[in-house]
Structure formats: structure tokens, C-alpha cells
Amino acid sequence: MENELKQLIIDALDLEDISIADIDSQAPLFNDGLGLDSIDALELGLAIRKKYNVKIDAEKEDVVKIFSSVATLAAYIQAERS
């Protein structure tokens, strides 16, 4: 699941120079980590909705926590789907 999500991130956000191996599941996705920004967050939210049919509501309080790393994102998607 985590690798599948990493590939989705790479494809949805056009991260041409980055491979799955370059993304640390525990590392921050935004700012310091991969250097993604708020438009990337929206784009990733859309890609997740299309692929997993899981909607991440931007109004939710825990949205920052959900998007904090690949691991937290994968855990959230799995919990929502089960």
C-alpha cells in the first residue's frame, strides 16, 4: 500500500526525478520533506479520491496529520476503506 501510494504521489505530482525508493514513508511530505506545497495537497487529495474512492475533507481538523507522511496517509486510506 505504501509503495502504491508513493507511485501515485510521483505520478499525480509529476515528480519526474524521484523514485519510490527516494520517498521515506515516515518523512514529512510537505515543506521540509519532499517540498510539496498546498496545490500539491489538493492534487494529491483528488488522485486519492479517484484511485481509492476515499475523500479527505479539507475541513477536517486532522487533515494536517493525515497528510504528514506516506505512512499516515496510507493508514488513513486503509481505515476509511475497511
Binding site: 505530482l13 496545490i39 500539491d40 489538493l42 492534487e43 483528488l46 479520491r49 479517484k50
Partner: peptide, 9 residues
């Protein structure tokens, strides 16, 4: 289909 936020911006 949904519109890409990146494409829109």
C-alpha cells in the same frame, strides 16, 4: 471528471 487543481491554477 474532476478538474486538476494544479491545471486550474
Amino acid at each position: 471528471e474532476d478538474i486538476s487543481p494544479t491545471a486550474f491554477s
